[in-house]
Design a protein around this nucleic acid. Structure first.
Lengths: 342, 342
DNA sequence: TGCTTCTGCTCAAACGTTTGCATATAGAAT
DNA sequence: ATTCTATATGCAAACGTTTGAGCAGAAGCA
């Protein structure tokens, strides 16, 4: 339990602490015999260099921070977060960095916690989930020159290091394929209006419509929280508002889509024969329901990996400012949309 | 970006660094005027005490570590982990501790990473997911007196600080209620044999059988990985092996139960009319499927909170050794078992 | 032999805090 | 006036490392 220090090793090996330090860093200034002697002593005493002392002199703590705000993680579907963390952890591990996690229960405290972390020098940089990050945080980080990378996109800022998928493109591409399958009365079930991802996905929907020469009908668009219940309710509303002239519901999230699926079912209609449903994210549940939910998969873990890598590069390479990385998405065709060319 | 140090503040406020330090800790030795003067300067310069320097002199880093091994998180259902982390983060936040996360892709590296973390003094203690933790890790931690708490139970060790639910009891209680509902040919679909949780749940199953005067029939017990697909396959096997003389499948995990649900369905049978299914964990998907899955809910987030609290107490209070906390479970009745007293 | 160069090590300062002890000032008690 | 106590502050060491500069001793070369 009591810490073995470099001095203990030095005394025991009959060398100076500096020599031990140079043995640790495998410096060429030290002879092989000395190295061996010192290493033996280190093993015998069970010496582990104190990370904190190291950080202090190196002015480098080799760790990055991830702030998860309670509002965000309630909003985002659960699996998103796990995958994200796993990706980030994989990269940090590989690069010999540590990952610090803080939670916050409001947006203000999120900002406070995040700034605190970097200002106290407890982490060297931050990964921010951009879904609804306050512009202020980003402004401050930019102004004071703290390394950070966004996962997602900030409405107010461009030219910020980030990794993201192209939500506009993803929805637009999917829409075009669906239209080619014969769908023409397509509703859009969006998440909360103030999420950038939702705005982008909606825009992809609109762009596809104009490209296909179809009319954009505002009454076919609905907004809801990212939840099963909200999806259920809004889908019903949509059916009523549109007087059933819908043949497909494009949902901005799988949870919404799962709700929509159920809504269709409770109205005595069949998916995909009567109405198609498509989601976003490829939640585990998407493959468990019947019919299987067709959805746009985004490689979340991969995004986490890339984000952490980029952040670490920005930290270590002073000439590298970070970049914008767009990760491709993939449509997972299951049985909630018609497969045939009607 | 450049760090403002205590010396900068001292110079600017025309006092010594020690005075500034005492202002930070709000020492009664410092006069009110001085305090005010110093605080003004701190604000003006945007001073934040360097956490690392503090840690070094205090010999306290105020952070705890959580090791998530890839094998464990693949095995455990995803939501489990998110909830756990959230609970832990909530407590650490509240107690002004930081949470360090490491991942590992094998059990050996998990042990290595965990030990490294405490030996480098990067964290003051560890939270271990006990599902399959190596006995060696625990032995070492005990021997070298590093604070830690288990979530779950270790087969080889008793009298170790931990928070857990009573899996034996939970299954036994559920079984007794199910038997009272008229079920008598109950199969048990377990997770991997070497998980303590699985052994415990199976034991609960057996104890309930003997208590009810029912025979334990080994051919009604099956083992599978914690996955939907495995559940599907093993449930089918179970039906074949038992020549359909089953009226209920008790699953050690919701994913297995979801598979079993589907297996029943593809055999043209109805849940719960022909065969009942019950799961464990109350995964989000459990409420989304049709029929809704009856399951045993364990308050995972709560367990995380308690574990972190206990660990911090052990760290801060040298007289407190930790204890065994058992969190009660709850059966969530949905529609995958018959409700009537047949 | 005397000078330079190289090798292998040690010394001491530095990183940014905290804290026990010393000290200066002021007012009170003698 | 002198001593005492209380109050407010400063000094310097310590925490466990790293690292530039310095310094012996050996080897190389004239």
């Amino acid at each position: 339990m009591d810490q073995v220090t470099i001095k203990d090793v030095a005394r025991e090996a009959e060398v100076s602490p500096s020599t031990v330090s140079r043995v640790i860093s495998d410096s060429s200034q030290i002879s092989c015999e000395t190295k061996e002697k010192v290493r033996t002593v280190m093993d015998r005493l069970g010496y582990h260099p104190n990370a904190i002392a190291r950080s202090l002199v190196n002015q480098r703590c080799n760790s990055i921070g991830l702030v998860m705000s309670r509002p965000t993680d309630r909003a985002l579907a659960n699996p998103f977060f796990t995958d994200m963390i796993q990706g980030i952890a994989a990269s940090t591990q590989q690069e010999n960095f540590s990952l610090m996690l803080t939670s916050a229960d409001s947006y203000e405290s999120e900002t406070r916690e995040a700034l605190n972390l970097v200002k106290k020098r407890q982490v060297e940089g931050l990964i921010l989930m951009a879904s609804r990050i306050s512009g202020d945080l980003i402004n401050t980080l930019v102004r004071e020159n703290y390394p950070f990378v966004l996962v997602g996109r900030s409405r107010e800022h461009s030219d910020i290091p980030r990794v993201d998928n192209n939500n506009i493109r993803a929805v637009k591409d999917a829409m075009i394929k669906l239209i080619a399958k014969g769908y023409s009365n397509i509703a859009f079930l969006s998440g909360p209006k103030d999420f950038v991802v939702c705005q982008d996905r909606l825009q992809g929907y609109r762009e596809a419509l104009v490209e296909a020469g179809l009319a954009y009908r505002p009454e076919l668009v609905s907004y809801a929280e990212f939840s099963y219940e909200a999806g259920l309710k809004e889908a019903h509303d949509l059916f009523i508002r549109s007087r059933r002239q819908i043949d497909l519901v494009f949902c901005a999230d799988d949870l919404l889509a799962l709700g929509a699926l159920r809504a269709v079912e409770t109205r005595g209609l069949k998916v995909p024969e009567d109405i198609g449903v498509i989601g976003f994210n490829d939640t585990p549940a998407a493959s468990l329901v019947n019919p299987g939910l067709t959805t746009v998969r985004i490689p979340i873990k991969e995004m986490g990996k890339r984000a952490a890598q980029m952040l670490i590069s920005v930290i270590e390479d002073h000439n590298y400012q970070g970049e914008e990385v767009i990760i491709p998405t993939e449509i997972i065709w299951r049985n909630s949309v018609r497969d045939d060319q009607l």
